[in-house]
């Protein structure tokens, strides 16, 4: 397959009550190196390279010509995921135990990155590394590590693994993969 048309193989996922769908194989019969479950658990993508998985998250990613365009696209994926992941964490609660100021930070618009000096609220805060030191200019909030969920769009793999850690997607590597 040429570099120009590399793309992840995407299939519909089955529900947890059913058997997992049959894994697609390559022309030579071998399995793909990566598997990603995304779209709220509705789809599975299979690929040999991380950028192909990012392309499944953001159609058109593979056609972007420059590293800067790709960096911007990854940042948009992270920002979109930040809003949804933050909403899910807030819905899971306990939002009622947060102060009005903490609720404002959790639920406020992400047109400006949240910049509390410290975060110790019972609901974790989702942040995108691009805006905070050392990649950006904002100081990182102080506070317990487990109350900060970081999305890192620095490169394809950091984006995928950070989305995985945030629970937005699931990425798995073939066990006997080199």
């Amino acid at each position: 397959m040429s570099e120009a048309n590399r793309a992840a193989v995407v299939i519909r996922n089955t529900s947890a009550a059913d058997r997992p769908p049959a894994m697609p194989v390559k022309v030579d019969g071998s399995l793909y190196r990566y598997e990603m479950i995304f779209s709220g658990g509705g789809s599975r993508a299979y690929a040999d390279e991380p950028d192909e998985l990012v392309g499944a998250l953001r159609p058109g990613y593979d056609a972007l010509g420059t590293p800067e365009e790709r960096r911007e696209a990854r940042a948009r994926i992270a920002l979109d995921a930040q809003v949804r992941a933050q909403a899910e964490l807030a819905a899971a609660g306990p939002l009622e135990e947060c102060t009005p100021e903490e609720r404002a930070v959790l639920l406020g618009g992400r047109h400006v990155p949240p910049a509390p000096e410290e975060w110790a609220a019972p609901v974790p805060l989702v942040l995108v590394t691009s805006f905070y030191e050392p990649a950006g200019s904002l100081p990182r909030p102080r506070g317990p590590e487990e109350l900060q969920v970081w999305l890192d769009p620095a490169d394809d793999w950091t984006l995928l693994t950070s989305l995985h850690a945030a629970g937005t997607i699931k990425v798995a590597i073939l066990q006997d993969s080199p």
Partner: peptide
């Protein structure tokens, strides 16, 4: 837009 509050309300409704 990029406002978690609306998504949080939507999730609360759906859940």
């Amino acid at each position: 837009d990029h406002i978690p509050a609306f998504y949080q309300r939507l999730l609360s409704l759906v859940n």
